[in-house]
């Protein structure tokens, strides 16, 4: 079988033989940077947990519940950040001048992260709601919007899983992402209008003051979870790139095999016709 594989031209899959060394060093630097981001993010999360659970004081009104402040808002922020990035990447893919499958991979990776963050946002929001409002779920505008967003992007991820030609799939999902994203403000406005039940942000500190250590911890949680987001997306993106490369290598093999079919029947042909 290996005899049939055409000599693989480096231009096919890499940067070409000339720039191999440069590419390798660039890759090493990227990996290092990514590792730094990951380690910093994880350290930040550990620090947030420590500060949030042990060091910061309970709130005068909300008691220990206030500790959700160190996870819920930053999760929600990351979820929206993730969807925003996914939307921009999809738009970049659809724009002919910036059409590149890398944007498609970025959109997918970011949407995956977004779904995870949304799930955590919903769970922590629900945990907050139980003691505060007396029920696990309130038809609060932000909560409802977030829930719909969650379902919307589950659909998007399901669409991404549908097998098919990478370019076809990329275009289909990019259009899907665009359509889903445009729905977000409409959902938000309609739900807000429908039921302006509560204060604007789902978890607002209300009358309690967030200052000093609490504010710093909250800020830290935003930074730490955002770094985790970047780390997560970068790894998913890299993985998707590797998968695509594997497919491309499969393509070269498939082309060679297909051509070999022709060669085989050419021999047959000559035998028949001579």
């Amino acid at each position: 079988m290996s005899a049939l594989v055409p000599p693989v031209d480096h231009g096919l899959f890499g940067e070409g033989a000339r720039s191999d060394a440069a590419a390798a060093s660039r890759q090493r630097r990227a990996q290092l940077a990514l590792r730094v981001v990951g380690v910093t993010g994880l350290l930040g999360v550990v620090l947030t947990v420590w500060l949030g659970l042990w060091v910061t004081p309970p709130d005068a009104y909300m008691g220990n519940l206030v500790r959700l402040l160190y996870i819920h808002p930053s999760m929600a922020w990351d979820a929206f950040l993730a969807y925003g990035v996914s939307f921009l990447a999809s738009a970049c893919y659809l724009w002919p001048r910036t059409r590149d499958l890398r944007f498609d991979r970025l959109a997918g990776a970011s949407a995956e992260a977004g779904v995870v963050f949304t799930a955590i946002t919903l769970v922590t929001g629900s945990l907050w709601g139980r003691p505060t409002w007396g029920t696990w779920w309130v038809w609060d505008p932000l909560l409802t919007t977030t829930a719909l967003l969650f379902v919307l992007y589950l659909g998007y991820l399901a669409l991404r899983k549908v097998p098919g030609d990478p370019e076809v799939r990329a275009k289909r999902t990019a259009v899907g992402a665009l359509v889903a994203f445009i729905d977000v403000p409409i959902v938000y406005f309609s739900v807000t209008w429908w039921k302006s039940l509560h204060q604007a942000p789902t978890i607002s500190p209300g009358k309690s003051d967030v200052h000093g250590l609490m504010a710093w911890t909250m800020l830290l949680s935003f930074v730490a979870f955002s770094l985790v987001y970047v780390w997560f997306v970068a790894h998913r993106y890299r993985l998707a790139g590797l998968q695509a490369r594997e497919e491309a290598e499969g393509l070269a093999l498939a082309l060679a095999e297909r051509r070999a079919e022709g060669a085989a029947s050419a021999v047959e042909e000559n035998e028949v016709w001579t």
Partner: peptide, 15 residues
Amino acid sequence: DAPLGAPIAALAGGE
């Protein structure tokens, strides 16, 4: 003769 090793010139970067 179907040349086997013809370069697949247009395929670049896996895309």
